[in-house]
Amino acid sequence: MSDVENTMAFIEISSDDPATIERFYSRIFGWRFDRTPGTNYGFIRMPGEAKPIGRLLDNAGATPNWGTFGIGVSDAEEICRRVKAAGGEILDSDQVFEDDSYVMRGARFRDPSGNLFAVGTVEPKE
């Protein structure tokens, strides 16, 4: 995730076939996918990097497949208030995803045109 506030920072991909998605993006960008045992997600990492750039969710066919972008912020709760005031829809406001090394916290929204986007932080585990 970018360390610059309010900039493009991470991606989220949801698929009913995560193995195919992992092969696809690995071949194109060299991304590494580290599944988190006991969950339906895994972090996405760039080659040679420990810090995640996003996550891949296994939706098991329960929802349509989708992909979105995330904005790096320091206060997701404040962004929730701003999104609501500006006419957006809050989909998830208390997301927490983690592996052995990092914790990703954030929220997901739809803008007034229905476009999906997210905000969040990625921090090393203490």
Rank of each mutant, 00 (worst) to 15 (best):
S2Q: 12
S2W: 05
D3E: 15
D3L: 11
E5Q: 13
E5G: 05
E5V: 14
E5P: 11
E5N: 15
N6H: 13
M8F: 15
M8S: 07
A9W: 03
A9Q: 03
A9V: 08
F10L: 05
F10Q: 03
S15H: 03
S15F: 04
S15T: 06
S15P: 02
D16Y: 08
D16W: 11
D17S: 13
P18A: 07
A19F: 01
E22L: 07
R23C: 03
F24C: 10
F24S: 10
F24Y: 13
F24L: 15
Y25V: 09
R27Q: 12
I28N: 04
I28T: 11
W31T: 00
W31A: 03
R32V: 06
R32D: 10
T36H: 02
P37E: 12
G38Y: 00
N40R: 10
N40Y: 06
N40T: 13
N40C: 08
Y41T: 00
G42N: 07
F43G: 04
F43C: 03
F43T: 00
M46N: 01
G48W: 08
G48T: 08
E49K: 12
E49P: 01
E49M: 14
K51N: 01
P52N: 02
I53D: 03
I53K: 02
R55A: 07
R55L: 07
L56N: 13
L57D: 09
D58T: 09
A60M: 15
G61E: 11
G61K: 03
A62I: 04
T63P: 05
T63I: 11
N65F: 06
N65Q: 09
G67C: 06
G70A: 14
I71R: 07
I71D: 02
G72R: 11
G72L: 11
V73A: 06
V73P: 00
V73N: 01
S74A: 11
S74D: 14
D75H: 10
A76H: 12
C80N: 14
C80Y: 01
R81V: 13
R82F: 05
K84S: 08
K84P: 00
K84V: 13
A85F: 01
A85R: 01
G88P: 03
E89M: 13
E89A: 07
L91H: 03
D92A: 14
S93N: 12
S93M: 06
D94K: 03
D94G: 06
Q95A: 11
V96H: 03
V96Y: 00
E98M: 13
D99E: 10
S101P: 01
S101F: 06
S101A: 15
V103T: 14
M104Y: 08
M104T: 00
M104W: 10
R105Y: 04
R105L: 11
G106E: 02
F109D: 04
F109Y: 08
R110M: 01
D111S: 00
P112K: 01
S113G: 04
N115T: 04
N115C: 11
L116N: 06
L116C: 06
A118T: 14
A118L: 02
V119K: 04
G120S: 06
G120H: 07
T121K: 06
T121A: 09
E123M: 14
E123V: 15
E126F: 07
E126W: 12
